[in-house]
Computed example of a mutant assay.
Amino acid sequence: MKIAILVNPLIPVPPEQYGGIERIVYLLIKELQRNGHEVILYAHKNSQAGCKLIAYQESVNYGAKDFIKINALTAKIAFQDFDVLHTFGRMNNIALMMWSKIPKVVSYQLPPTISQVKKATKIAFKNTLYFTACSNFIARQINKFANVTTIYNGVNINEYQFNATVSADAPLVFLGRIQEEKGTSIAIQVARTTGRKLIIAGNIPAEETHKQYFSTKVKPFIDDVQISYIGPVNNFQKNELLGNSYALLMPVTWDEPFGIVMAEALACGTPVIGFNRGAIPEVVINGLNGFVCNTLTEMIAAVGHIPEVSRLTCRGTAEDRFNAVVLGKQYENLYRKAINRR
Protein backbone atom coordinates (compact mmCIF):
# COMPACT_ATOMS: atom_id res chain seq x y z
CA MET A 1 0.00 0.00 0.00
CA LYS A 2 0.97 3.62 -0.55
CA ILE A 3 -0.09 5.57 2.52
CA ALA A 4 -0.12 9.31 3.24
CA ILE A 5 0.15 10.15 6.95
CA LEU A 6 -0.45 13.67 8.24
CA VAL A 7 0.34 15.17 11.63
CA ASN A 8 0.14 18.80 12.74
CA PRO A 9 3.52 20.47 11.96
CA LEU A 10 4.23 21.65 15.49
CA ILE A 11 6.70 19.00 16.72
CA PRO A 12 9.07 16.83 14.63
CA VAL A 13 8.40 13.12 14.11
CA PRO A 14 9.78 11.51 16.21
CA PRO A 15 9.92 14.01 19.08
CA GLU A 16 13.08 14.33 21.15
CA GLN A 17 11.18 14.65 24.42
CA TYR A 18 7.50 15.61 24.74
CA GLY A 19 5.20 14.74 21.84
CA GLY A 20 2.88 11.79 22.38
CA ILE A 21 1.06 11.93 19.03
CA GLU A 22 4.31 12.32 17.10
CA ARG A 23 5.76 9.32 18.95
CA ILE A 24 2.79 7.16 17.93
CA VAL A 25 3.02 8.32 14.32
CA TYR A 26 6.70 7.36 14.25
CA LEU A 27 5.97 3.88 15.63
CA LEU A 28 3.22 3.38 13.07
CA ILE A 29 5.46 4.41 10.19
CA LYS A 30 8.16 1.96 11.30
CA GLU A 31 5.64 -0.89 11.53
CA LEU A 32 4.11 -0.12 8.13
CA GLN A 33 7.53 0.01 6.53
CA ARG A 34 8.52 -3.25 8.21
CA ASN A 35 5.45 -4.82 6.59
CA GLY A 36 6.48 -3.57 3.15
CA HIS A 37 4.29 -0.48 2.73
CA GLU A 38 5.32 2.89 1.29
CA VAL A 39 4.68 5.83 3.60
CA ILE A 40 4.82 9.54 2.81
CA LEU A 41 4.72 11.78 5.89
CA TYR A 42 3.33 15.32 5.94
CA ALA A 43 4.79 16.94 9.05
CA HIS A 44 7.25 19.36 10.67
CA LYS A 45 10.30 20.15 8.52
CA ASN A 46 12.73 18.65 11.06
CA SER A 47 11.01 15.26 11.11
CA GLN A 48 13.29 12.26 10.59
CA ALA A 49 10.91 9.32 10.36
CA GLY A 50 12.91 7.37 7.78
CA CYS A 51 10.38 7.86 4.99
CA LYS A 52 9.70 10.52 2.37
CA LEU A 53 8.83 13.79 4.10
CA ILE A 54 6.66 16.57 2.74
CA ALA A 55 7.19 19.44 5.16
CA TYR A 56 4.56 22.07 5.79
CA GLN A 57 3.88 24.82 8.29
CA GLU A 58 0.94 26.50 9.95
CA SER A 59 0.64 29.72 11.91
CA VAL A 60 0.58 29.82 15.69
CA ASN A 61 -2.96 31.15 15.39
CA TYR A 62 -4.44 28.86 12.74
CA GLY A 63 -6.58 30.84 10.33
CA ALA A 64 -8.10 31.05 6.85
CA LYS A 65 -4.72 31.48 5.15
CA ASP A 66 -3.48 28.26 6.75
CA PHE A 67 -6.64 26.44 5.70
CA ILE A 68 -6.27 27.48 2.06
CA LYS A 69 -2.49 26.91 1.86
CA ILE A 70 -2.52 23.49 3.51
CA ASN A 71 -5.55 22.22 1.60
CA ALA A 72 -3.85 23.25 -1.64
CA LEU A 73 -1.07 20.87 -0.60
CA THR A 74 -3.14 17.95 0.70
CA ALA A 75 -5.64 18.06 -2.18
CA LYS A 76 -2.82 16.85 -4.45
CA ILE A 77 -2.99 13.51 -2.64
CA ALA A 78 -6.07 12.72 -4.72
CA PHE A 79 -3.91 12.61 -7.87
CA GLN A 80 -0.84 10.73 -6.58
CA ASP A 81 -1.95 7.07 -6.50
CA PHE A 82 -2.31 6.84 -2.73
CA ASP A 83 -4.30 3.93 -1.36
CA VAL A 84 -5.07 5.54 2.01
CA LEU A 85 -4.92 8.98 3.61
CA HIS A 86 -4.45 8.85 7.40
CA THR A 87 -4.45 12.00 9.51
CA PHE A 88 -3.57 12.48 13.16
CA GLY A 89 -3.89 16.24 12.70
CA ARG A 90 -6.53 18.84 11.99
CA MET A 91 -9.44 17.56 9.95
CA ASN A 92 -9.61 21.06 8.43
CA ASN A 93 -6.34 20.29 6.66
CA ILE A 94 -7.94 17.56 4.54
CA ALA A 95 -11.26 19.32 3.93
CA LEU A 96 -11.00 19.15 0.13
CA MET A 97 -10.11 15.46 0.31
CA MET A 98 -13.52 14.63 1.81
CA TRP A 99 -14.98 14.50 -1.70
CA SER A 100 -12.23 12.16 -2.91
CA LYS A 101 -12.80 8.42 -3.31
CA ILE A 102 -9.53 7.72 -1.48
CA PRO A 103 -10.18 6.09 1.93
CA LYS A 104 -9.55 8.52 4.77
CA VAL A 105 -8.72 7.52 8.36
CA VAL A 106 -9.03 10.21 11.03
CA SER A 107 -7.38 9.31 14.35
CA TYR A 108 -8.30 11.06 17.59
CA GLN A 109 -5.75 11.19 20.38
CA LEU A 110 -7.70 13.91 22.18
CA PRO A 111 -11.40 14.56 22.81
CA PRO A 112 -13.08 15.12 19.42
CA THR A 113 -14.82 18.22 18.15
CA ILE A 114 -18.21 16.63 17.53
CA SER A 115 -19.38 19.35 15.15
CA GLN A 116 -16.45 18.52 12.85
CA VAL A 117 -17.16 14.78 13.08
CA LYS A 118 -20.77 15.40 12.04
CA LYS A 119 -19.80 17.72 9.21
CA ALA A 120 -17.11 15.41 7.84
CA THR A 121 -19.42 12.39 7.99
CA LYS A 122 -22.06 14.34 6.08
CA ILE A 123 -19.86 15.57 3.23
CA ALA A 124 -17.38 12.69 2.79
CA PHE A 125 -17.70 10.46 -0.25
CA LYS A 126 -19.68 7.35 0.68
CA ASN A 127 -17.74 4.59 2.49
CA THR A 128 -14.45 6.52 2.51
CA LEU A 129 -14.28 8.01 6.01
CA TYR A 130 -13.16 6.05 9.07
CA PHE A 131 -12.50 7.23 12.61
CA THR A 132 -10.19 5.73 15.23
CA ALA A 133 -9.80 6.58 18.90
CA CYS A 134 -6.88 5.89 21.24
CA SER A 135 -9.27 4.58 23.91
CA ASN A 136 -12.86 3.54 24.44
CA PHE A 137 -13.25 6.71 26.47
CA ILE A 138 -12.62 8.77 23.32
CA ALA A 139 -14.52 6.35 21.08
CA ARG A 140 -17.69 6.70 23.15
CA GLN A 141 -17.74 10.41 22.34
CA ILE A 142 -17.71 9.67 18.61
CA ASN A 143 -19.80 6.52 18.16
CA LYS A 144 -23.14 8.29 18.54
CA PHE A 145 -22.41 10.14 15.32
CA ALA A 146 -20.03 7.92 13.31
CA ASN A 147 -18.45 4.48 13.27
CA VAL A 148 -15.20 4.42 15.22
CA THR A 149 -12.54 1.81 15.98
CA THR A 150 -10.54 1.85 19.21
CA ILE A 151 -6.84 1.29 18.57
CA TYR A 152 -4.78 1.68 21.72
CA ASN A 153 -1.48 3.51 21.62
CA GLY A 154 1.66 1.47 22.01
CA VAL A 155 5.40 1.44 22.52
CA ASN A 156 8.32 -0.31 20.91
CA ILE A 157 8.66 -3.05 23.49
CA ASN A 158 12.28 -3.69 22.49
CA GLU A 159 13.25 -0.17 23.54
CA TYR A 160 12.18 -0.74 27.14
CA GLN A 161 14.26 -2.93 29.40
CA PHE A 162 12.23 -5.17 31.69
CA ASN A 163 13.31 -4.96 35.33
CA ALA A 164 11.97 -7.93 37.28
CA THR A 165 12.86 -6.53 40.71
CA VAL A 166 13.54 -3.21 42.34
CA SER A 167 14.83 -2.40 45.80
CA ALA A 168 12.34 -2.10 48.65
CA ASP A 169 13.08 1.61 48.92
CA ALA A 170 12.81 2.30 45.18
CA PRO A 171 11.22 5.70 44.50
CA LEU A 172 7.80 6.50 43.17
CA VAL A 173 7.91 8.43 39.90
CA PHE A 174 5.83 11.15 38.29
CA LEU A 175 6.57 11.61 34.59
CA GLY A 176 4.67 14.17 32.57
CA ARG A 177 4.07 17.86 32.07
CA ILE A 178 4.24 19.79 35.34
CA GLN A 179 0.77 21.29 35.50
CA GLU A 180 -2.25 21.12 37.73
CA GLU A 181 -4.40 18.72 35.71
CA LYS A 182 -1.55 16.20 35.63
CA GLY A 183 -1.57 16.15 39.43
CA THR A 184 2.10 16.77 40.25
CA SER A 185 1.26 18.24 43.65
CA ILE A 186 -0.96 15.25 44.42
CA ALA A 187 1.96 12.92 43.69
CA ILE A 188 3.96 14.91 46.24
CA GLN A 189 1.21 14.43 48.82
CA VAL A 190 1.25 10.67 48.18
CA ALA A 191 5.02 10.49 48.63
CA ARG A 192 5.06 12.62 51.77
CA THR A 193 2.23 10.64 53.39
CA THR A 194 3.72 7.23 52.57
CA GLY A 195 7.27 8.28 53.40
CA ARG A 196 8.56 7.16 50.01
CA LYS A 197 10.93 9.06 47.75
CA LEU A 198 9.46 10.67 44.63
CA ILE A 199 11.26 11.59 41.42
CA ILE A 200 9.44 14.16 39.30
CA ALA A 201 10.38 14.34 35.62
CA GLY A 202 8.89 16.41 32.83
CA ASN A 203 8.73 19.85 31.31
CA ILE A 204 7.15 22.95 32.77
CA PRO A 205 4.95 24.46 30.03
CA ALA A 206 5.72 28.05 29.08
CA GLU A 207 2.33 29.48 30.04
CA GLU A 208 2.41 31.64 33.15
CA THR A 209 -0.30 29.62 34.92
CA HIS A 210 1.89 26.51 34.75
CA LYS A 211 4.99 28.36 35.94
CA GLN A 212 2.97 29.68 38.86
CA TYR A 213 1.73 26.17 39.67
CA PHE A 214 5.29 24.87 39.75
CA SER A 215 6.59 27.72 41.90
CA THR A 216 3.79 27.50 44.49
CA LYS A 217 2.65 23.86 44.52
CA VAL A 218 5.74 21.88 43.55
CA LYS A 219 9.02 23.73 44.07
CA PRO A 220 8.56 24.39 47.82
CA PHE A 221 8.58 20.62 48.47
CA ILE A 222 11.66 19.79 46.39
CA ASP A 223 14.46 18.96 48.81
CA ASP A 224 16.50 16.55 46.65
CA VAL A 225 16.27 14.06 49.50
CA GLN A 226 12.70 12.79 49.50
CA ILE A 227 11.31 14.85 46.59
CA SER A 228 13.48 15.44 43.50
CA TYR A 229 12.82 17.22 40.21
CA ILE A 230 15.09 16.22 37.32
CA GLY A 231 13.44 18.11 34.43
CA PRO A 232 12.61 16.67 31.01
CA VAL A 233 14.11 13.27 30.16
CA ASN A 234 15.09 11.65 26.87
CA ASN A 235 14.25 8.08 25.89
CA PHE A 236 17.32 6.55 27.53
CA GLN A 237 16.76 8.43 30.78
CA LYS A 238 13.06 7.55 30.74
CA ASN A 239 13.87 3.86 30.42
CA GLU A 240 16.21 4.02 33.40
CA LEU A 241 13.82 6.10 35.48
CA LEU A 242 10.73 3.96 34.92
CA GLY A 243 12.53 0.63 35.14
CA ASN A 244 13.98 1.42 38.55
CA SER A 245 10.80 2.85 40.05
CA TYR A 246 8.53 1.35 42.68
CA ALA A 247 5.43 2.58 40.83
CA LEU A 248 4.31 5.26 38.37
CA LEU A 249 1.80 7.75 39.78
CA MET A 250 -0.96 9.07 37.48
CA PRO A 251 -2.93 11.38 39.80
CA VAL A 252 -4.61 13.22 36.92
CA THR A 253 -7.49 15.56 37.61
CA TRP A 254 -8.72 15.54 34.01
CA ASP A 255 -9.96 12.80 31.70
CA GLU A 256 -6.70 11.46 30.27
CA PRO A 257 -7.37 10.20 26.69
CA PHE A 258 -4.72 7.48 27.02
CA GLY A 259 -1.41 8.33 28.68
CA ILE A 260 1.49 6.72 26.80
CA VAL A 261 3.68 6.95 29.89
CA MET A 262 1.55 4.20 31.44
CA ALA A 263 2.40 1.83 28.58
CA GLU A 264 6.06 2.80 28.90
CA ALA A 265 6.06 2.05 32.62
CA LEU A 266 4.33 -1.31 32.13
CA ALA A 267 6.86 -2.23 29.44
CA CYS A 268 9.57 -1.78 32.08
CA GLY A 269 7.60 -3.93 34.52
CA THR A 270 6.58 -0.99 36.68
CA PRO A 271 3.03 -0.93 38.13
CA VAL A 272 0.81 2.12 37.63
CA ILE A 273 -1.36 3.82 40.25
CA GLY A 274 -3.86 6.24 38.75
CA PHE A 275 -7.12 8.00 39.34
CA ASN A 276 -10.32 6.70 37.76
CA ARG A 277 -10.36 9.29 34.97
CA GLY A 278 -10.55 8.99 31.20
CA ALA A 279 -8.79 5.93 29.80
CA ILE A 280 -6.84 5.04 32.94
CA PRO A 281 -9.20 2.17 33.94
CA GLU A 282 -8.78 0.75 30.42
CA VAL A 283 -5.00 0.59 30.78
CA VAL A 284 -4.70 -0.23 34.48
CA ILE A 285 -6.36 -3.46 35.59
CA ASN A 286 -6.94 -3.24 39.32
CA GLY A 287 -4.59 -5.53 41.23
CA LEU A 288 -3.07 -6.97 38.04
CA ASN A 289 -0.78 -4.26 36.69
CA GLY A 290 -1.52 -1.52 39.20
CA PHE A 291 -4.42 0.15 40.95
CA VAL A 292 -7.27 2.45 39.92
CA CYS A 293 -8.23 4.87 42.68
CA ASN A 294 -11.13 7.23 43.26
CA THR A 295 -9.60 9.33 46.03
CA LEU A 296 -6.27 10.49 47.38
CA THR A 297 -6.79 8.20 50.37
CA GLU A 298 -7.17 5.20 48.07
CA MET A 299 -4.05 6.19 46.14
CA ILE A 300 -2.02 6.43 49.34
CA ALA A 301 -3.29 3.00 50.40
CA ALA A 302 -2.50 1.52 46.97
CA VAL A 303 1.19 2.30 47.42
CA GLY A 304 1.27 -0.23 50.25
CA HIS A 305 -0.17 -2.93 47.98
CA ILE A 306 2.40 -2.60 45.18
CA PRO A 307 4.36 -5.72 46.36
CA GLU A 308 1.24 -7.74 45.47
CA VAL A 309 1.61 -6.79 41.79
CA SER A 310 3.81 -8.95 39.55
CA ARG A 311 6.24 -6.91 37.49
CA LEU A 312 6.31 -9.76 34.96
CA THR A 313 2.55 -9.41 34.55
CA CYS A 314 2.97 -5.68 34.01
CA ARG A 315 5.39 -6.39 31.19
CA GLY A 316 3.01 -8.99 29.78
CA THR A 317 0.10 -6.56 29.55
CA ALA A 318 2.32 -4.13 27.67
CA GLU A 319 3.43 -6.83 25.23
CA ASP A 320 -0.11 -8.08 24.64
CA ARG A 321 -2.08 -4.83 24.55
CA PHE A 322 0.22 -1.84 24.07
CA ASN A 323 2.80 -3.12 21.63
CA ALA A 324 3.76 -1.22 18.48
CA VAL A 325 3.45 -4.49 16.53
CA VAL A 326 -0.19 -4.82 17.63
CA LEU A 327 -0.85 -1.14 16.85
CA GLY A 328 0.61 -1.44 13.36
CA LYS A 329 -1.38 -4.57 12.53
CA GLN A 330 -4.65 -3.02 13.68
CA TYR A 331 -4.17 0.07 11.52
CA GLU A 332 -3.09 -2.09 8.59
CA ASN A 333 -6.26 -4.18 8.93
CA LEU A 334 -8.37 -1.03 8.99
CA TYR A 335 -6.66 0.27 5.84
CA ARG A 336 -7.42 -2.99 4.01
CA LYS A 337 -11.04 -2.90 5.14
CA ALA A 338 -11.37 0.67 3.89
CA ILE A 339 -9.77 -0.12 0.54
CA ASN A 340 -11.98 -3.17 0.00
CA ARG A 341 -15.15 -1.15 0.64
CA ARG A 342 -14.45 1.45 -2.04
Rank of each mutant, 00 (worst) to 15 (best):
S310R: 15
S310T: 13
P251M: 04
V303G: 06
S215I: 07
V303Q: 06
N239W: 11
C293R: 04
A318K: 03
N294A: 10
E308L: 11
G278V: 03
P205S: 01
P271C: 02
F275K: 05
I199Y: 11
T317P: 05
E319A: 02
G274P: 15
W254P: 10
A301S: 08
I227A: 02
N323Q: 06
V325D: 08
R311G: 00
M250Y: 07
G259N: 15
G274T: 07
L288H: 10
E319D: 04
T270P: 11
L198R: 10
L249M: 09
R321M: 13
N323F: 02
C314A: 01
E308Q: 08
L288M: 15
N239P: 07
N286P: 05
L242N: 13
I300P: 15
P205N: 01
S185C: 03
P251H: 06
I200K: 02
S245R: 14
L327C: 12
K219G: 00
R196Q: 13
I285V: 08
I222E: 10
T216I: 09
T270F: 08
R192S: 06
G259Q: 13
E180P: 11
E208V: 13
H305M: 15
E298A: 10
N323A: 05
K182M: 07
T317I: 10
A265F: 02
C314W: 00
V190N: 08
E282A: 08
A206I: 14
T313D: 06
F221M: 02
A201L: 07
K219Y: 01
K217H: 13
S185E: 11
R277S: 09
V225G: 13
I186V: 15
I280T: 09
G304C: 07
F322H: 12
V252G: 12
A324K: 13
A191F: 00
G304E: 14
K217I: 00
K238F: 04
L248E: 01
T216R: 14
F221P: 06
F322Y: 15
W254V: 11
K219I: 00
G202Q: 12
Y213I: 04
T297E: 14
G290H: 01
H210I: 01
V261W: 00
M299A: 02
F275H: 15
L312A: 13
V233C: 04
T184W: 03
V233E: 01
G195W: 06
S215N: 07
P220F: 01
R192N: 10
N286L: 02
I199N: 06
N323G: 08
G274L: 04
N276V: 06
D320S: 14
R315Q: 08
A263E: 14
K238T: 11
G269M: 03
T313P: 15
T193A: 10
D223T: 12
C314R: 00
R311S: 00
D224A: 15
S215E: 11
E208D: 14
F258D: 02
G316I: 03
M262S: 08
P232E: 10
